[in-house]
Design a protein around this nucleic acid. Structure first.
Lengths: 170, 170
DNA sequence: TTGATATGGCAGCGTTGTTGACTTTCCAAG
DNA sequence: CTTGGAAAGTCAACAACGCTGCCATATCAA
């Protein structure tokens, strides 16, 4: 087990990276980095009278075209009512198309329009640009560690969702 | 230069970790992990009719007792009015004490009361517990990478603030 | 004395989260 | 084939927490 080997190493090594001080540094790094992480798309969104919630919806609809409202709710972890408001404006503005479900006609399947896909690209390219620079500066090893810690931080349920999404890109 | 050596390595290596797909995975990992990151304190806060903004204020006041309102504004990156609302409730509830500045009497220096320190510990211990588990599961190397990427993600100005805070704990 | 700074109050607005109550649509069990 | 209940969505109201703008007060420093 990789896990066990790592723990064995740590017994010989120092456990200094687990002190409360180190953990606090990590907490502060998350806070500051997340603010930077959302800053670029936020600028674009403010001009369009949209918010972060719109960005998130566009992101996941783009990721899995045709997903239902209920699935999107589960991924975003918000209430139906909260999402509905966001979705309604996106549909009114013709960025998202809502089609009656094929199997179950109560369901609504969500798709980006061309315009929606275009905005999604603009937003995610802004976000990716920052990510790309950070990745490049930190190097592949650091990136692997970054992903490992983030995954370890998720709840089991969320991690399962996250892992499941990997398959969509294969 | 460490940076240059890394880039040289990457030219020989694959640059696969910089594909748009990999970047998107990183973006999603940030989104899901940040939600988990705030989940535990949020539960405690909800019971007390406080929000994340209260937590952040308590955190940084605890970190640098006696800091002024203006410094806190700069760290949190919000407006005076927004912070003022939060600070007022914390002072009313006797979690934070606001003393007239020693050097400049226009300034207010902020301190946690015993009760405030106690809540801060409860909140940050909940957050640290998750962090600790994640760190332990990922191992010291991964943690180093995690921190490296987060720092690379920050704006230069924010990173300077973040780095400056390191000295407070020494 | 005068101008700049630090703080704070008040009013009002927007985004995005919440609950609760309700309707419409549809599937599936009896 | 009817009907009970689940799923999807709507509307209303509220809360947290960002924002802007305007104004008052206290204080420092030139």
């Amino acid at each position: 087990m990789q896990q066990k080997a790592r723990v064995q190493n740590m017994i010989g090594e120092d456990l200094l990276f687990l002190t409360d001080d180190q953990l606090r540094r990590g907490i502060e790094a998350m806070f500051f980095a997340y603010r930077a992480f959302t800053a670029d798309p936020d600028l674009i969104l403010a001009d369009l009278d949209y918010g972060r919630a719109h960005h998130r919806a566009l992101h996941f609809i783009n990721r899995s075209p045709g997903l239902t409202v209920t699935s999107l709710l589960a991924v975003l972890g918000v209430t139906k009512q909260s999402l509905n408001r966001v979705l309604r404006t996106l549909i009114e503005d013709k960025l998202v198309e809502s089609r009656v479900g094929r199997r179950d006609r109560r369901e609504r399947q969500l798709y980006l329009t061309d315009e929606g896909a275009s905005l999604e690209r603009r937003l995610s390219e802004a976000q990716r640009a920052r990510m790309r620079t950070a990745y490049r500066n930190a190097g592949p090893q650091a990136v692997a560690g970054f992903r490992q810690v983030l995954e370890a931080m998720m709840d089991a349920e969320t991690r399962a969702q996250y892992q499941a999404m990997k398959d969509l890109s294969d």
